[in-house]
Computed example of a mutant assay.
Amino acid sequence: MVHWLKYTTSFVLFLLAYMAFTHTNWWCWSALVYAWLLIPFVELLQQPNTANLSETEEIAAKKDRMYDVVLYVAVIIHIVLMFVFLHSLQTTGLSVAVRIARIATMGLLCGTFGINVAHELGHRINQYKQAMAKIALLTSLYMHFFLEHNRGHISGWQRLKTPGTASLQVSVYRFWIRSVIGTYVNAWRIANKYMQQQGLPVIHYQNEMLQMQVIQLIWVMGIWFFMGWKIALYYIVTAIIVFFIIRNRELY
């Protein structure tokens, strides 16, 4: 059996998102119903599969480039759909319900493909794979995740002290505020410390965190300039949705 093929089934969400961005009827809600209602319901009925790959299968999987190809295709489709989404909101006469559905759908895409695929690519050592991870994170205005997760959350000596890890019995609201703000602040701390170790000032073009802020600002301002402030505002709302999705997932 070709194990990587099963991961392409997630592309169904891309198709439903495209339908949501190009239709004004019930299709607008199809991706949300699929991801937040249908899949959880099916998982309740299914028995969990606890089997892992054998040692031989794991070695073969690591050598199979098709796993990487699935990730590359996901990033490309995700970016294309981002522009389809932004263009769709420029359509005149859209109802409030349609706008809400499309914004929530794009937030869902960014919180699933944008973050999860970037998370996977961000752990690779190849620069072009890490670049693709940062591009995917850009769509969520969450580029600092690459820096904080790889150099803070994962490499930290005590994960329970990192802002991205929830303490026992912490409320979802308290964790969300702490993690969103804490992760951002910690990313700056990591980047600044690296600059100091290199003997360079914090405010320097080589500061990776500073680079990310400039790139994200240019991206948002570009949307504002070419599509208007309303579209830029809608886009920012999708990023806020992503913050809820990723942090609520880590809580559980």
Rank of each mutant, 00 (worst) to 15 (best):
M1N: 11
H3P: 05
W4E: 03
Y7F: 13
S10L: 10
S10K: 10
F11C: 07
F14S: 01
F14R: 00
Y18A: 03
Y18D: 02
M19N: 05
T24L: 05
T24R: 11
N25I: 04
W27Q: 09
W27L: 04
A31Y: 00
Y34A: 02
I39N: 06
F41Y: 09
E43I: 08
L45M: 13
Q47G: 03
A51W: 10
N52V: 08
L53G: 03
S54H: 04
E57I: 07
E58G: 05
D64R: 01
R65Y: 14
Y67S: 00
V69M: 13
Y72H: 04
A74Y: 07
I77A: 06
V80A: 09
F83N: 02
F85L: 04
L89E: 00
L94N: 08
L94W: 02
V96W: 15
V98L: 00
V98Y: 06
I100F: 12
R102M: 00
I103W: 07
A104E: 00
T105R: 01
G107A: 04
L109T: 00
C110I: 09
G111C: 02
F113H: 04
G114Y: 13
V117R: 04
E120G: 02
L121I: 01
L121G: 01
I125T: 15
Y128P: 04
K129P: 02
Q130H: 13
M132V: 02
S140Q: 04
Y142R: 05
Y142M: 08
H153E: 12
Q158G: 08
L160S: 11
T165L: 15
A166T: 07
Q169G: 07
V170C: 09
V172Q: 12
W176T: 07
I177N: 11
I177D: 06
S179M: 10
T183N: 15
W188C: 04
R189I: 11
M195F: 05
M195A: 02
Q198W: 10
I203Y: 15
N207Q: 02
E208T: 10
L210Y: 15
M212N: 11
Q213A: 11
L217H: 13
I218T: 12
V220N: 08
M221T: 09
I223V: 09
I223D: 00
W224N: 08
F225M: 09
F226Y: 15
M227N: 12
K230D: 14
Y234N: 05
T238K: 08
I246K: 13
L251I: 12
